[in-house]
Design a binder for these strands. Sequence first.
DNA 1: CTCCTGACTCCAC
DNA 2: TGTGGAGCCAGGA
Length: 110
Amino acid sequence: MARCVSDPDKRRQAIWQVVHAIPVGRVCTYGDVALLAGLPGRARLVGRVLSELPPDSALPWYRVISASGRIAFAPESEAFVRQRQHLQQESLAIAPTGRLTGWPDCRWQG
DNA sequence: CTCCTGACTCCAC
DNA sequence: TGTGGAGCCAGGA
């Protein structure tokens, strides 16, 4: 889909597109999203873009987790709980440590 | 332009 | 399985 994008707006859109493409009940790592967006090695950029999403965003940001298969937030933090609830709605279980049960079986890489 | 920070990763112990 | 350290890129002060 996307090659090496240089414009900030283009990068955002590329990342949004990839996140939006993640199937229900599946998850993807920051690194994978970056790769699929044509931005290899820019996992941090993905996290930055997602952190700037508005509260009413329809983007399934909660389907993006860290490469270790865990939620990127501190356990029991507000954001952590929100993400966990969204994932549970899609039949994905989260261990107390934040680790996704069944990982990497539910992993999606395009 | 330099310095600091972060929703990241990888590797070693 | 969990921790700690180094590498990385982008954005804001």
